[in-house]
Amino acid sequence: MPVLILAQHNNKAIHPATLSTITAATRLGNNEIHVLIAGYKCENVARSACLITGVDKVLHAEAPHYEHFLAEEITPLVIGLTEDENYTHIIAPATSFGKNILPRIAALLDIQQISNVSEIIDENTFVQPVYTGNALATVQSESKVKALTIRTTLFDKAPLSVENPASLEHVNHTPAVNISRFIQREIIETERPNLTTAKIVVAGGRALGSKENFKMLETLADKLGGAIGATRAAVDAGYIPNDAQIGQTGKIIAPDLYIGIGLSGAVQHTSGLRDSKVIVAINTDEKAPICEMADYTLNADLFEVLPELIEKL
């Protein structure tokens, strides 16, 4: 029996989180994998999804009211698909896209969703972080259909392949529900790599002290070709927009290198970065939690070492 993946995309391209979700789906056993591309003017996305390794069938649904992926509009479409096919699992990335829509679908199918799956033990058994990442819960689902959101940083991105492309099937759209309406989306433009997918992330905290000082991090990030991240304290103080926040109320990241500068490493922050390969802490307090977690610590005043680091790189 097949599994259904709710693909995140922007009507132009597949989101990398979808590729990790597909890899997670391949761990469920011998299931066929169907990927739903619902949107508007997104046929090219559907075609390119046919080339993702592991995908057997791409379902393509178009309508103006799917353009902005409103949960109210996408839900009836998915419910309809589950009536035609015996899906064992419905899966979405645990991004603001997936986390918004999947519980709405799960409720109407009368199933409890399992959120932020970090490990798939078998088709019924999953591990998820709980208590802000302080613990891992192993849970078993006894429901006929399982709804899962995937902590995508823990699964590699499924590669593209031109061999055995998946079949493409157009599905009819459902009528518009019209109880909510998209007005606008302000995308924060940046020349730097995307925070969630960057290989290197330079993150700053309260100790940077001002917006001007925070610019030092930008220089460092640019030298390293990395993205900028921040703590809630730095965002609250107005050093940088909220979009850069890492953690429980921000982004989940897993770069090869994370450098935390002038931040303490509160669990609400570190829960968003604990899967980073190498962690560097620059902090005056050797007892700060970030130093206990780091692979390399510089016990030093950031205002002294940051200019030196920028100069020597």
Partner: peptide, 21 residues
């Protein structure tokens, strides 16, 4: 009415100890 069974709760795997430079 939920069909989810909690099997166990465990610590996240520790990170390898780091060094101060």
């Amino acid at each position: 009415s939920s069909h989810i069974k909690l099997l166990k709760v465990s610590e996240p795997p520790p990170r390898a100890p780091g060094v101060t430079l």
